[in-house]
Computed example of a mutant assay.
Amino acid sequence: MKITVFCSANEHIDPDYFRMTEELGRWMAENHHDLIFGGTSHGLMNCIAKAVHNGGGRVIGVVPSLVEKGGRMSEYLDVHIPTDNLADRKSLMIERCDVVVALPGGIGSLDEIFCVAASKCIGYHSKKVILYNMKGFWNSLIALMDDLNQKGMIRGDWHNMIEVANDFKELKNLLNATI
C-alpha cells in the first residue's frame, strides 16, 4: 500500500509526536507499505522518512523546487519526484497514494487534508483520509467539523470523508481495512 502522510515540518513541537511518528514509520516499513510525503528534511516529515527508510521501506518524496533550492530536502528519499509548486506536490501525493494519514501539522497540512476530503466529497476518488489524533491534537478541528455538520454546512456526515484514529491501534485497524 502507498500511504501519503501529511504532517508538520517544524522541529520545536511535542517530542511525543516524533516518537509516535517514528512508530508509524517503523510499522509501515515492517508491513511493506510505501511512504509518500512532502520531501523535507525537518520535523515530522523527516522523522517519518527516516523511520521508513531505516526500516527498509520505500520513501517517495514529492519535493517542491523551493524546498530543494533551499537545501531542505530529506536525505532519506528512495524516489525523488520534483515539482514546481505546492499545488503540484499535493496533486501528485494524492494521485499516487492508496490512503492519506494526517499527523499533527499546520496550515499546509490543513490545506492538504481538506483538498483530499473535498475532492472525495465531489467524487473524484474514494481514498480514505485519516486524522491521526495524537494526544488529542486534532480535537479542536474535530469539534469545528462537528459544529459545521450541526449547522448544515457539510453535506452528509463529515466522518464519511475524514476518519479519526485516536491511538495507534485504531490507526492500524483503519489502514489494514484499506488493504
Rank of each mutant, 00 (worst) to 15 (best):
F6S: 12
F137K: 01
D147G: 07
I94H: 06
M20H: 13
I113M: 10
D98N: 15
D157H: 15
C7Q: 12
K135E: 12
A143P: 04
S8G: 07
G156Y: 11
D88E: 15
N139I: 00
P64L: 01
N85I: 08
L66W: 02
M145L: 15
I142T: 12
C97H: 10
K50W: 13
F114A: 01
S119W: 13
I13A: 02
F137E: 01
C47I: 03
I154Y: 05
N85L: 12
D167S: 04
S119P: 08
V67T: 10
E75V: 02
N176F: 01
V79E: 15
I154H: 02
E170R: 13
T21N: 04
N160S: 15
M93A: 05
S109D: 12
I81F: 07
L24R: 09
S74F: 15
G108L: 05
I162M: 06
K135H: 14
V101Y: 06
D167H: 03
K90S: 14
D84I: 04
G156I: 06
M1H: 12
S140T: 12
E163A: 05
G105D: 06
D78G: 13
Y124C: 05
V52C: 08
L175E: 12
G105C: 10
G61N: 05
A87N: 15
G25D: 05
I107P: 10
W138M: 07
E112V: 08
N149V: 10
L77V: 13
A118R: 05
S119T: 15
C47M: 09
L148D: 06
I13R: 11
L86F: 03
R155P: 06
N10M: 08
M134C: 10
H12S: 10
S91N: 14
E112Y: 10
N173T: 14
V59E: 03
I179G: 13
E23V: 02
K69H: 11
L66D: 02
G71P: 05
L110V: 11
I162T: 04
L174S: 09
I130E: 05
Y124T: 10
R26K: 12
D84K: 14
V100Y: 13
H12G: 04
H33C: 06
N10G: 07
E22S: 13
K90W: 04
I48W: 03
V164P: 05
M45H: 08
G152Q: 07
L103E: 06
V52L: 08
T4L: 03
K172H: 11
K127N: 10
M45G: 02
W158I: 04
V67Q: 00
F37C: 04
L174P: 01
I60N: 02
N85S: 09
D98W: 11
F37A: 00
D147S: 07
E30K: 09
I130K: 14
R19G: 03
C7N: 06
N149S: 15
C121H: 15
Q150D: 07
I113C: 04
V67P: 00
A87D: 13
E112F: 04
H42W: 06
K169G: 04
L144N: 11
L144Y: 14
M45E: 00
D111E: 15
N10T: 08
F18K: 08
I3M: 10
D34Y: 00
V62C: 06
L66I: 15
H42Y: 14
F37W: 08
L103S: 02
H80G: 00
E112N: 10
R72P: 01
W158P: 10
L110Q: 09
